[in-house]
Design a protein around this nucleic acid. Structure first.
Lengths: 153, 153
DNA sequence: GTACATTTAATGTATGTACATATATTTGCA
DNA sequence: TGCAAATATATGTACATACATTAAATGTAC
């Protein structure tokens, strides 16, 4: 099995926390590459895929562009332009919100939903990727540890 | 303390592995944002910073562009162009390798080394970020788990 | 030794990101 | 009401990424 040190050919880290930081970054990038590869044939970028999944999670309820930003992993990505691309392909639709006409309501279309279903078969779920090596107990412990890492002064 | 579900306002995940996957991606992005903020004043991008650190790790020994790619976290980033920017600011130097004239040897300059020293004071180390919430033992366990996740068929 | 394949780096192009600014709408308050 | 401040989205820009292609050097088969 390749350790993170072998992966990036770094023989030693200054300490185990440094190793862990790099390991988290590298593992995230590794997930990204896997998913990008799976999406390639459909000409859908990773952020586009994520937006579609957030919209599906809304179960038909519209969400504003700012709401999308809040739920996106990469906070600085430009949700407005990602929605542009998706709208151009009719995978989502956009409508000015009646109650607050500054807001724009975004919803996934039927076409978007059906593409997403196809994609879900191609993109391996995190469960598929991790369940063999990690018990649910392990996963819970990891989740707790990551939550803790981000919650420091 | 905010869990990952609270961070991205997702009330429920399909399973704990899905939650963990998102958690890893989100934590990596969170690290990235912190570092980018710290580097902003120096007008050095994250990948540029990473390249400088790889070069410093070489302890004066030159490395090829392909060698940089291997050691970089984001495999698809264009090392050639990142080196362009660094060379333009005289933080690294580039020279055709004598033994194999297809290769280019990259080394960090004194100016690059001294900027990197400054940056290391500004950019919080992973140890600083994580040591309070995580024992070294915990960190070791996490490292092992992440290595395992990436090493599946 | 020539011809072809492989390797290394650079470049071209489309898209995405980071960050500032612009535009429209709503809110708060004198 | 009228007007400044705040909010929501879109847009402008420079740079970075993803991926294909090009150009030069080296390796290999004949």
């Amino acid at each position: 099995m390749k350790s993170i040190g072998e992966e990036i050919q770094q023989s030693e880290f200054s300490d185990v926390y440094q190793e862990l930081g790099i390991n988290i970054l590298f593992t995230a990038a590794w997930f990204g590459e896997r998913n990008r590869l799976a999406l390639k044939d459909y000409d859908i970028s990773l952020p586009q895929f994520n937006v579609l999944r957030i919209l599906r999670g809304q179960k038909g309820q519209p969400i504003s562009v700012a709401g999308l930003c809040d739920r996106m992993i990469d906070k600085s990505s430009n949700a407005s332009r990602i929605v542009d691309k998706l709208e151009a392909r009719k995978l989502v639709s956009r409508r000015v919100c009646d109650k607050d006409r500054r807001q724009v309501d975004v919803v996934i279309t039927d076409k978007g939903t059906s593409i997403l279903e196809e994609l879900n078969e191609k993109v391996p779920s995190f469960k598929t990727i991790m369940a063999k090596q990690l018990s649910t107990k392990d996963a819970e412990v990891l989740n707790f540890a990551l939550d803790q890492i981000r919650n420091q002064k």
